[in-house]
């Protein structure tokens, strides 16, 4: 437990000293949602409200992709990743703690901010709650998937596009289940299946990621 706390406290300390970067995900979210609101201002309010949770979901997905490369990049650049990989045991646990830190710092703020923005734009409380729940389940899965892609491409100087290309097909099921759940919630239709499938995906990648990531990092450093 101390180990988990140490790694997370280190990541938070580094984030607090990184300047404005820590606020970028929320800034991106606000910009996208503002433009979205302006661009469909001529559409009827009912249609706008129907599209709002879907648009919020897509915005969150894109923002998640944008900050994926940060998971291991700094550690690779300063050499701490090499020391991290020297350990014969516990690499997988350390990787999971790093992904958790990344999610807490980059994605959790969006998970909290997105429903607030949706409420401010007039979305009902029920759909907003579903939006929050689906993002709460979906974004950790996206971080897990993204960390594998980030690990595979870490040694490339400009890896952002490649990371996006790798993760996009894998994000599609999460996007489908997430948007389907909020859409069903909007029309007061049962969405338990979508939530169950999202939880299922989360656990699959929770099991796969530590091993895949440690292998990918070792290959990238070779």
């Amino acid at each position: 437990m101390t180990r988990v706390f140490n790694i997370i406290s280190k990541e938070f300390l580094l984030a607090s000293r990184s300047g404005y970067e820590v606020f970028l995900p929320i800034v991106y979210l606000l910009i996208i949602m503002m433009f979205f609101n302006i661009s469909i201002s001529y559409v009827e309010k009912d249609i706008m409200l129907e599209l709002l949770p879907l648009m919020t979901w897509i915005s969150c997905l894109l923002i998640c992709i944008l900050n994926l490369e940060n998971i291991f990049k700094e550690d690779y650049d300063d050499g701490t990743l090499e020391m991290f990989l020297m350990k014969k045991e516990g690499i997988e646990l350390d990787i999971m703690i790093k992904i958790l830190s990344h999610w807490l710092l980059s994605n959790l703020p969006i998970v909290i901010a997105a429903p607030l923005v949706a409420i401010a734009l007039g979305l009902d409380f029920g759909t907003t709650s579903t939006l929050f729940i689906t993002l709460l389940i979906g974004t950790p899965t996206m971080s897990l998937i993204g960390s594998i892609a980030a690990a595979l491409t870490i040694s490339l100087k400009k890896n952002k596009i490649l990371v996006s290309v790798i993760v996009l097909p894998l994000y599609v099921p999460i996007l489908i289940f997430g948007t389907s759940a909020v859409n069903n919630s909007f029309f007061k239709i049962n969405y338990d299946t979508e939530i169950t499938l999202m939880i299922f995906l989360f656990f699959i990648f929770l099991l796969l990621t530590p091993l895949a990531c440690s292998k990918a990092l070792k290959i990238s450093l070779d």
């Binding site: 580094l14 000293r17 300063d78 050499g79 701490t80 020391m83």
Partner: peptide, 9 residues
């Protein structure tokens, strides 16, 4: 070659 230290610490 890389020192393994964090610049922001």
């Amino acid at each position: 070659h890389k020192y393994g230290i964090k610049g922001n610490l």
